[in-house]
Simulated assay, not measured.
Amino acid sequence: MKTKFLCSIPVLPSQDIVRDLEWYAQTLGFVKTFGDHSYAGMRLEEVEVHLQRYSATGASQHVNGSVVKIFVKNIEPFFEALVIKGVVNCDHMNKNTAWGTHEFRLTDLNKNAIFIVEDIESSAEKTS
């Protein structure tokens, strides 16, 4: 079965998640869907955006780039193809994360982090 690409979710850096969620709500009409002071998601109709806390003065893995999450159904074939190409190592897949996903990460030439993510519920549907 082939990997099906479902959507992409940008993850934007934030110095203050609570402040920024309030700004997005009041200014643009976004509604918080999940999260805490370090990572949160919000939605406006069909558009989803995530915020990730970073410190402007501390070390942050995303200082030099942004993050995008690309959601898929049936993650394995795409992951295996990238392993064969040498883009990712075979041990880079994180299965059954605490937040309910199977996912792996790679970095583009500009140090932007790209996460390929499959919801575990989506994964379970394909085996039922």
Rank of each mutant, 00 (worst) to 15 (best):
R53K: 15
E22A: 10
K85N: 12
R43W: 02
A25K: 14
A124E: 14
N74Y: 08
V47S: 14
H92A: 10
R105K: 08
I120W: 14
V18G: 00
L51H: 07
F34C: 02
V68W: 04
E48Q: 12
I17P: 09
L51A: 02
D119S: 04
E45N: 12
A113V: 13
V87W: 03
Q61N: 11
L12I: 11
Q52A: 01
V117M: 05
W23M: 04
R43K: 15
G41R: 03
G29R: 05
M42E: 05
A81E: 15
P13M: 04
K2L: 08
H92F: 13
A98R: 13
H102Q: 00
K111A: 04
W23H: 10
P10A: 03
E80G: 02
L109Q: 10
S128L: 02
G35N: 00
D36F: 07
Y24W: 14
A81H: 12
V87R: 12
I70Y: 13
L51F: 08
I70L: 13
K111L: 07
N94R: 12
M42Y: 08
S55K: 10
N74C: 00
E46Q: 13
N74E: 13
W99C: 05
L6V: 10
G86A: 08
T3C: 13
A40D: 05
I75W: 07
K73T: 12
V11K: 01
E125K: 12
T27A: 15
N110G: 08
